[in-house]
Design a protein around this nucleic acid. Structure first.
Lengths: 251, 251
DNA sequence: ACCTTTAATGGTCACGATGACCAATAGTCA
DNA sequence: TGACTATTGGTCATCGTGACCATTAAAGGT
């Protein structure tokens, strides 16, 4: 009876476009750029200069340009905000998309959120322009603009979960690192202490997680026995996983 | 030196909108609706009636309306496509967003992909209009329109992974089910055989995964000892995980 | 009725991974 | 030289799991 209707998402166009989507959507990317420094999880934040949320901190981000994918836009923004020349090796991972109609009071903005992991923060704050960008501890990253608190929390949760079953932790470390540094990544992100010999055994027993740097050893700031240096291996997943200690009962 | 620039994603608006985003984005949702029937993983697909990809199968989907979130749009589409009255209890999960500039040859379409899991397929094909919608086995869901092959593969991978560390499998089952049916969900999605006593032990040893229905038992089609019936429990996560047998070496 | 078939249920046993420890090594600092 | 500190190496009991075998309770055929 009814005329054939194309019910796929790309179907009713261009006719359908006028009917369903004549209010255009702005598409942006938001980045939760995370790093571990001084035993604390830190986030790269920028200070807003305009309303709404003027003076509040927010996640860095920007519009997806007409010929970009969200991934491309995210990596471009990552380079701009951190000031790094080469961000091609950094771990960048799509989190999810936030599309609540009222998430921006001015218009309809759909944002694709990403989590980025990087080692040593290159500079206290990157970027060349005047907008303030700073590394702030995750815990004290007070109320952020828009729904960025939620995005940041989701990023933290995702990264924490992926540490369990992937070799992602090396993305927080410089090219050569000690097992102590690697362990501190886990402890900082999870907020728990780990037994050092057990952590060591687990990491070394997982083929491809890390590989030793032949002759090298680092004097860890001075005190204690020098630690051996390792590089990230080829493996990407952890079987069986390295699970975070259950504080109690997790069903 | 330069004027303060708001570098958050919601910052350069409305001025920035004209500059960066004057080519509007269409935002859609695409659904990978999965079910397990007759020991095979099946997908709900619709046949396209228009170019491009006329005659090809595609994932169901549609535009996000101006006052909807992607999640709301996805659940609305799910109801429309399956023909079910109440889809509020079905598991619906955001996968990721696909935004390659050339993914639709006609215009810029950004799609938020979802995976939906449901028990008994209610009808061979749902929906009330003339567009053809059908359940097809996952394996034979031959080349789909647009990038839907990739979306479907990502959905499969995500669901398979979540079976390991979550109680998601019950979403494929009717309100009351036997442990054999639950096991078949795992075997079908993973494509591997599991040892029945071991599976049983694991499921029953996980508090909150399933809870027995007091007096009931189902004659499983006739043959064999009648199986006890269970309901889904309160738990959502599985600790430790129920890992799929490693076919060989997974680093 | 009887035996066969089928599937659920119940249990054993050995091995691997892990948590909780303790001990030794190799540096710095006072 | 002697604390102190952090890395490194090891033991031991326990838990979870894979690989099995055994039993129970139904249907179906002879």
């Amino acid at each position: 009876m009814t005329a054939p209707v194309d019910r796929t998402s790309n179907g009713n166009r261009p006719e359908g476009y006028d009917k369903y989507a004549h209010e255009p959507f702005a598409v942006t990317v938001d980045l939760a750029v995370l790093t571990v420094r001084d035993g604390s999880l830190q986030v790269l934040l920028v200070e807003r200069g305009q309303e709404p949320y003027a003076g509040h901190w927010a996640l860095p981000g920007g519009f997806v340009l007409p010929n970009e994918s969200a991934e491309t836009a995210a990596r471009r923004e990552l380079a701009e905000e951190t000031g790094l020349e080469d961000v091609s090796e950094l771990h960048l991972e799509q989190l999810r998309t936030y599309s609540e109609p009222d998430r921006d009071p001015r218009m309809r903005v759909v944002t694709v959120a990403f989590a980025a992991l990087l080692p040593h923060p290159p500079e206290p704050h990157g970027g060349g322009d005047a907008a303030q960008a700073r590394w702030l501890p995750y815990d004290t990253a007070g109320p952020l603009a828009f729904d960025h608190d939620r995005i940041l929390a989701d990023a933290h949760e995702r990264v924490g979960a992926k540490l369990e079953y992937s070799c992602l932790a090396t993305s927080f470390c410089p090219p050569e690192f000690t097992l102590g540094e690697l362990q501190q990544v886990y402890e900082t992100v999870w907020g728990t202490a780990l037994d050092r010999p057990n952590f060591r055994r687990k990491v070394l027993a997982t083929p491809g997680f890390v590989e030793p740097v032949p002759g090298a050893a680092r004097l860890t700031g001075g005190r204690g026995k020098p630690a051996a240096l390792y590089r990230a291996g080829e493996a990407t997943t952890l079987h069986p996983p390295l699970m975070r200690p259950t504080p109690e009962g997790r069903s």
